[in-house]
Every structure is written in structure tokens, then in C-alpha cells.
Design a protein around this nucleic acid. Structure first.
Lengths: 103, 103
DNA sequence: CTCCAATACGTAGTGACCCTACATGTAGGA
DNA sequence: TCCTACATGTAGGGTCACTACGTATTGGAG
């Protein structure tokens, strides 16, 4: 989860709702997180110091815009490594080989 | 989790402790689940009807040997599909290109 | 003008579940 | 005798994603 949100913020600051939509679009609608998942997760990441938020108002709507911190960038790199490792391990244990890839 | 345990039982009946070791060996020790994870998970799978257990005694030690049910086999196939899909979605969302592979 | 959807943020409560820690007992080697 | 490996189990805690609900504005459809 955390890695996914961080990855979305990698290409520039975004507000929560935009993060949710970006994630949905990036996965062809297959990963459509509810707001009750996204917002608490962003708060968690901010408390952890991985992202930094700031309030603004755009066309009458208040927005909390987040951007990656240096620590967040490092955490994202770690999350990518960790995911690769994790996926390889699970794929191995689940059988069928690491990456069948249209055999 | 469930899929991993089911996969371990695919090649024949095993008892809980053996499942734990098989999983550890299959992943080069990278996935060494504690007994407090394995046993409750097996109980869960049995309650769900995906595996079927039976007691026996081997060299003075009592064993609960599990084997896949038909439903369990179907569930395992589904879990493999689901994992492939899931891994693809996460990999896509996590970005960094399809497969950076030692950039 | 009214109503509803989309935008945008948030919290509370629930349920699932993995893990730590502990308990029990046998077999076998140091 | 003691410790390790084998073998199973429960209890409690902490994390976390999700459902459901609440608040507020903008803008388009009817």
C-alpha cells in the first residue's frame, strides 16, 4: 500500500483524491481504493515522515497536497526492492516458476 | 497465505510441521513462517473445506496430516490466477518500468 | 431553480489475520 | 542429564484495509 501511494507521488505533488484517481487509472480500474483506505494511509505516511502535506484552496475546494520527502524517496526505493523480492518468493512458493510469462 | 499452504499440499498429503519446512526450503529460507501462523491457517483452511485432516501417530509423535479437497484444488488454481493478476497490477502501479532488471 | 453527481476531505467501527509468546509432549544425541 | 529437533496447539496484541457515514463546494442536467 504505502509503496503504491509513494510511487504515485514520485512524478510530482498530488492531493489525496488525485492520488486515488491516478492509481485507478494506472491500473486500468483494477485497483480502485476507497477513500477510507487512501486518506488514513496518507495520514500514516505523513506521520511517518515519508510525505509532507500542505493545505490549499482550488476553485472553492480545500485540498491537502502531498509531496515526497527525502526519506519517502528512500522508502520508495526500498519498497520496490522489497516488492521484487517478495514477488519472487511468492511466485516460487506458489509454483509455476518465477515468471511464466506467456509460456 | 492460503494459496501458499495449498500449493505445498499439491504434491501429496503433508502434516503441518512438514508444510512449514517445505515452504521454508522452497524459498531458500526466505519464507520461514512461525508455527503460530501455520497451524491456525491450516485450521482455517480445514474449516473452509479446502483441506481435509486426519490424525496419525508416527514414531511416537502425533501428526495431523492434511490433503487437498476438490474444492481446495479449485481454490489453488484461483489463487494462482489471482496472484498473477495481483502481481501484474502492483508491478504496474509501483512503476519503474515493466522490468528494470539491474539498471 | 432544484437536484444530483463529482470533487474533496475526514472519522468510527469492524473484521481479518499474522505474529509473539507461551504451553504440552516425544525422540534422540551430547 | 540436558538440549535440540520434532509436532501441535491457544491466547493476546497490533496492524490495517474496508464499510459506512458525515461535511462541504462546484457545476451540470432537468
Amino acid at each position: 500500500m504505502d509503496g503504491l501511494l509513494l510511487a504515485t507521488l514520485e512524478d510530482g505533488p498530488q492531493h489525496g483524491y488525485a492520488v486515488k484517481e491516478a492509481l485507478r487509472d494506472a491500473t486500468g480500474g483494477k485497483l480502485d481504493l476507497p477513500t477510507g483506505t487512501v486518506y488514513p494511509a496518507l495520514h500514516r505516511l505523513e506521520r511517518a515522515g515519508l510525505i509532507k502535506g500542505s493545505w490549499s484552496v482550488v476553485s472553492g475546494r480545500r485540498r491537502r497536497t502531498y509531496e515526497l520527502t527525502e526519506q519517502g524517496r528512500r522508502s520508495l526505493a526500498g519498497a520496490r526492492d522489497h516488492w521484487q523480492e517478495f514477488a519472487a518468493v511468492i511466485s516460487a512458493a506458489l509454483g509455476g516458476g518465477p515468471w511464466p510469462a506467456t509460456n
